[in-house]
């Protein structure tokens, strides 16, 4: 299926959860926040939130700022 991750169109396998996606990307769930189609996914839901074809996923963390 196709996912739009942080503005990049990517091809992913089916049956992927938010947890699975973060693991595939090598990103630690601590310290990030995730949005799917503009809705924030709570950390406790990463394991069960299944991603669908065409989903827009945003993964953010903190960077230097004033």
């Amino acid at each position: 299926m196709k996912l739009m991750i942080n503005g990049n169109e990517t091809e992913s396998g089916n049956n992927l959860t938010v947890s699975g996606l973060l693991e595939d990307l090598g990103i630690e769930p601590a310290g990030v926040a995730v949005e799917v189609n503009m809705n924030i996914i709570k950390k406790c839901d990463y394991e069960r939130h299944a991603l669908k074809d065409g989903d827009a996923v945003e993964i953010v963390n903190f960077v230097g700022g004033g």
Partner: peptide
Amino acid sequence: VTVAVRRTNIFDSKSENLL
């Protein structure tokens, strides 16, 4: 300390993190 919220680098998971 103030920080900003920005997209994570999804292509380089080894990149360093401010925190």
